[in-house]
Design a protein around this nucleic acid. Structure first.
Lengths: 94, 94
DNA sequence: TAAACAAGTTTATAAAATAAACCAAATATT
DNA sequence: AATATTTGGTTTATTTTATAAACTTGTTTA
């Protein structure tokens, strides 16, 4: 019997966000937006969900005078991602 | 920029169905149901979607006197699955 | 100084997933 | 022999989720 997939990660945009953050020290809203091609609204919502789940850390500050939202993956997020990949491998027969 | 994931396959239950069918000649409704743990209603709906997309073939007949729904993956379904796996690998950094 | 732009957030809408209710036929129960 | 239960589903309703549209706040630029 296949294990359930973490619903928080099994979402195209949220998975893309985490996937980006896994590879870098940190990334800001604008960068993630251009990398994913998401609308600002959708991205804002999904970042919120990941943060509330404790998968990412979000720091809202300013770069000069413009607002800047920086995201980082957390330890818990990294673990959840690793677990998600393991589970998914069974679905993908890998 | 990450490619979009086939929304038909990027669904836990539909992915599970296709994953099962990839490995076997054919499988019936009851088997898929016990393997996935899905409710009959949900399974019925998702099988329908996969069939309408041409990813699977569905044959409704009888085994003895009881109805029996047999599913098989199609060539197109196999291709879509392979493509989905390739795309997903980029998200999973593999 | 008003128009356009940047970086988001909030709210509304569309689409999905899921569950609940239902159906028809078969088998088991009293 | 009637009735209850189970099997194998489908249909419809509800909930959840994803997405987009509209709005906000402050900033440049014309």
């Amino acid at each position: 019997m296949l294990k359930p997939l973490d619903p928080l990660l099994h979402s195209e945009l949220r998975l893309a966000i985490v996937s980006i953050l896994i590879g870098v020290e940190e990334a800001d809203f604008v960068y993630i937006r251009t990398e994913t091609g998401a609308t600002a609204g959708n991205l804002s919502v999904q970042i919120d969900k990941l943060q509330k789940a404790g998968y990412i850390e979000v720091e809202k500050g300013f770069r000069g005078k413009m607002p800047r939202t920086v995201c980082r993956i957390t330890h818990s997020g990294r673990e959840a991602f690793a677990q998600y990949v393991e589970t998914l491998k069974e679905y993908l027969k890998m």
